[in-house]
Design a protein around this nucleic acid. Structure first.
Lengths: 185, 185, 185, 185
DNA sequence: TATGAATGAGGGTTCATTCAT
DNA sequence: CATGAATGAACCCTCATTCAT
């Protein structure tokens, strides 16, 4: 039931999906949905909160990895893993972020995003201090760019013909080594 | 007027923005909007089509650069430049892509996106053939990842404290050289 | 100008025609129409009142014809003639009678229709008394049927005082045998 | 519910009647109407299509009557009967014919009218051939006049191919003498 | 005279939600 | 649990009319 709603939210967006569509998909009438959920918001809440909680749990765990590069790798991989289970949640966030960002009920979402940013930047800064990353690396900017790839990007799934692992490996390759042939050395 | 609507569309999404909000922002009544525009759709159309047209023009020009690396650099830089002028259009596309993608009136958008992809992938493939890019580079996958950074990503503007040039340079640095300290050499 | 409006009113109906359409047809903007007319109503007024006035003038004149058959013939012929000059007015009445019938500004229309009915019925009755028309002719019913052909055939239902069968029988009688007393035989 | 809407449509016209008025008459709010009907158009559709279907069914049946006079009588009587059940539909057609005639959703209406005309004219022609009706009877013109009484008296102007005088003379002929061959005399 | 931007009431329609059955 | 009729606010849009220019 929740999965049905999530799928629809992912496809059409949270706001653009009507409760009647959800009910139709479930084979019941719209009024009957309210025996299962308090409101449309509560459906969204359940989908989104379970997602960000899992992300936060993973990120906090990654923060205690051996070194920043390992931490970042763990973050990227766990993100990919979480996303494969919560595709719909990500799609919803992308689609209707401006709605969730301002709606009181979903105030925990911006808060979670801020913590996620903190963790990323922490690890990038640590990597610089440890000499693992370029000393001129701009942590905040880098995070923004990376987040855009790991998060907001519409659908990993749309990249047909690639396994999730292939995608992650490709991303890491570019991330760490770039796409250019190393000068000469 | 168009700019006002664009700004609102960017902030709240095309569908979530009501014509009354646009009219309010313009200091007129909702009905008066229709003196300036045929419909809400036509406002969206004007914003989006002028955007994709500029992008396509630039990309086609870039395709005739000296070499693929120059072409890609020109593509990235022109994208950044176009985006700085059409921030709202990008935000709209991200926000309500599922709507625009299916609405007949906006059928030119998916078409444009396909051409954009073709141009990117062409240059990446050419770069591989010319030995400029890693021979194991996966063009399609790389494009997807890059597009996610250059396109779908929420708002460049949100990256406060950075000039547009800084952001582009940062992106290119990562793109070409990665973030890792080169092995030893 | 008036003719333009009349033509449009006739084609699409008075209410369904917008002032902008009239202005477009006149090659000016909608606001400019108001330098020529006070309101849409006043345009309709001019078209309709000149029509009914001509009809009434003709009917009153016909009432003083030699005999009822001549009077009726004059009525029918003058109606046809007036209609050829005021086609639009008739179309308007047919189209939006329910509107004109209730609008205070057009109160003269129902009044005129009542006078028209009186004149018809008078002549039919006179014809019966003079032995020109079948003695069993129902003047009121006959008028209703004739008016429906010549005028604004309202609704069968409005023919109060007659059962449906009476109406049908009356119609069939006229249809097959006419209203005139058979020549001599 | 349908009957309520039909009554209002008949009184004020289809276009001039608002869904809010229908809802008011039903004692509900305008939005609630959409629980029962897809749209205002679908209400009109149901009213009109059931009407023309019944008419067509009856007319087709009448076409196989013993002789043309019986067929016409059956047509007239069935029309009267159908009309007593679908008064509103007729009023709607009269009122907003120009709308229905052009709206794609109601394209079946002009088509039905054409079949109705074919059936009438067929029987009138057969009656002439069989010597039941005056040999000089103009089938098409006669139908037009009759239809005006029984149906949607459109516009005189629409009777193409006849001069105004021809139309008037034809009308007077029917009016005074009917269409049947005088008994014997 | 003509313009054209603006009005403001009202049009048809959608939709999350409620509730008696 | 499910129904389905009803709500009521909000949606996009239309249109006769006004008025400063």
């Amino acid at each position: 039931m929740l999965a049905l709603a999530a799928e629809l939210f992912a496809q059409k967006g949270y706001r653009a999906t009507t409760v009647r569509e959800i009910a139709d998909a479930a084979g019941i009438l719209s009024g009957s949905l309210y025996h299962h959920f308090d409101s449309k918001e509560s459906i969204g809440d359940e989908i989104l909160s379970s997602f960000v909680n899992q992300v936060l749990t993973n990120y906090r765990a990654a923060a205690s990895a051996a070194d920043p590069r390992a931490a970042l790798e763990q973050i990227v991989r766990s993100t990919s893993h979480t996303l494969s289970q919560h595709r719909a949640a990500l799609a919803m966030l992308q689609h209707d972020w401006s709605y969730f960002a301002t709606h009181p009920r979903f105030a925990y979402l911006p808060k979670a995003l801020r913590e996620i940013e903190r963790i990323w930047i922490n690890q990038l800064e640590l990597g610089k201090q440890d000499g693992l990353f370029r000393p001129d690396l701009d942590a905040k900017l880098t995070y923004r760019l990376l987040r855009d790839v790991l998060w907001i990007p519409e659908q990993w799934r749309r990249t047909r013909g690639y396994s999730t692992d292939q995608v992650v490996d490709g991303f890491l390759r570019i991330l760490f080594d770039g796409i250019a042939v190393p000068a000469d050395c």
